[in-house]
Simulated assay, not measured.
Amino acid sequence: MQDVARGGVWAVVVAAGRGTRVGAALPKQYIAVAGQPLIGHTLSALCSHPGVRGAVVVLAADDAHWPGWSEMAGKPLLGCVGGESRADSVLAGLQALPDEVRADDFVLVHDAARPNLRHDDLTALLERGRADPVGAILAAPVRDTLKRAGDDGGIDRTEPRERLWRALTPQLFRRLQLGRALESARESGIAVTDEAMAMELLGMRPLLVEGDEENFKVTTAGDLARFGFVLSQRLHGSGAS
């Protein structure tokens, strides 16, 4: 853990989305779970790790719900306004990082709607990702049988699941390389769905680091209830952090 903590990294936390599929009046990142907004749980899990030095939170331009936090777990929080796309928002976050973050320093990118990040997973990502020339992402192997559907909704065939992974966050890349990859994708008119995809488009091969499947993204009301259950189990001593 000491090696991970030495020269801690900054994080960009993307919180500019609307989260309409949850079906709530508030953006999903501000829905209270166990007395705290979802984004508070996310930032606490991230910033309480000794390998994280601080975070930039990327917000929507008209965000009226951000509590204005300037620190979390004793680490500095900075805010900035995001863009129309995920790539635009991450680019804004990279630009808002403090001057102490050099071009070749590694930076984490994390979803505000992934509140259940385990410290063990983040430690593994930092240790292995910073030893890789490109960087790394947390990911989970696909375990379900995959079916390809036809236009009529029927099954066309079963797809092999070997070597298939579900991309999670955080994802860890060098500040300058990631910025250039995102700008290149934008100039090419490609809507990247995660940071690794932008790096892949430049011919780079990020490392996959297996993470816990409980690091799920809150997208629906069911996901929100699931996280509430996880918290209740943890509070009663039967859940892992």
Rank of each mutant, 00 (worst) to 15 (best):
D156K: 03
P206F: 14
R128W: 06
A240I: 11
P133C: 12
D212F: 00
D3R: 12
E100Y: 03
G93V: 13
L59K: 10
P37M: 07
Q177G: 10
R175M: 12
L97G: 06
L78W: 11
L117C: 10
G135L: 15
F106P: 05
S89T: 09
E187P: 05
V209G: 08
G8R: 09
R180A: 13
G211R: 05
G35W: 08
H65T: 01
A25F: 04
R114C: 15
A25Y: 07
R143P: 00
V56P: 11
L59F: 14
D156H: 04
Q36Y: 01
L201D: 04
G35S: 05
A225F: 02
L201I: 11
G150T: 06
M199K: 09
R128N: 07
V109M: 05
V52L: 09
R86Y: 15
R180F: 06
S184F: 13
P141K: 08
P206R: 12
E213K: 03
F106Y: 15
A181V: 10
M199W: 08
L94E: 14
C47Q: 00
V14F: 10
Q36K: 11
G129A: 13
G23K: 14
P76D: 06
P170L: 07
A198R: 03
R53N: 00
D144V: 05
D194C: 14
M1I: 12
R175K: 15
G74L: 03
V218Y: 00
G54Q: 05
D99T: 09
G237Q: 10
L231W: 07
V90P: 03
R205Y: 01
L224Y: 04
E127K: 11
A131F: 15
R86D: 09
L108P: 02
A96W: 12
R128F: 07
G51P: 07
E210I: 03
V12D: 09
S89N: 08
A113G: 01
D194P: 07
P67C: 03
I155T: 14
G150W: 03
D194N: 15
D156T: 03
L94T: 07
A92H: 09
E210N: 02
R205N: 10
L138N: 10
P160S: 12
S232A: 15
A198Q: 04
E187H: 14
K75L: 02
R205W: 02
A45N: 06
S44L: 13
R18Q: 11
A45P: 02
R175S: 09
E162W: 08
L224M: 08
V230R: 11
T158R: 06
V192W: 05
V134R: 05
I39E: 02
G189C: 05
S89H: 03
I190N: 09
R21V: 01
R118C: 00
V209M: 09
Q95I: 10
A45R: 14
C47M: 06
G8H: 04
G237K: 06
V81H: 13
W66D: 11
L138G: 12
M72F: 00
W66I: 00
R118K: 13
D194T: 00
S238E: 15
D152F: 04
S184C: 03
W165E: 09
A167G: 08
R161I: 09
A185L: 03
L172M: 06
A5I: 01
S232T: 12
L108I: 01
E127S: 15
F106V: 06
R166M: 13
R175D: 14
M1Q: 07
R143S: 12
S70K: 08
V109I: 15
G222R: 10
I137K: 02
A124H: 08
F229K: 10
D105Q: 12
P115T: 04
L126W: 01
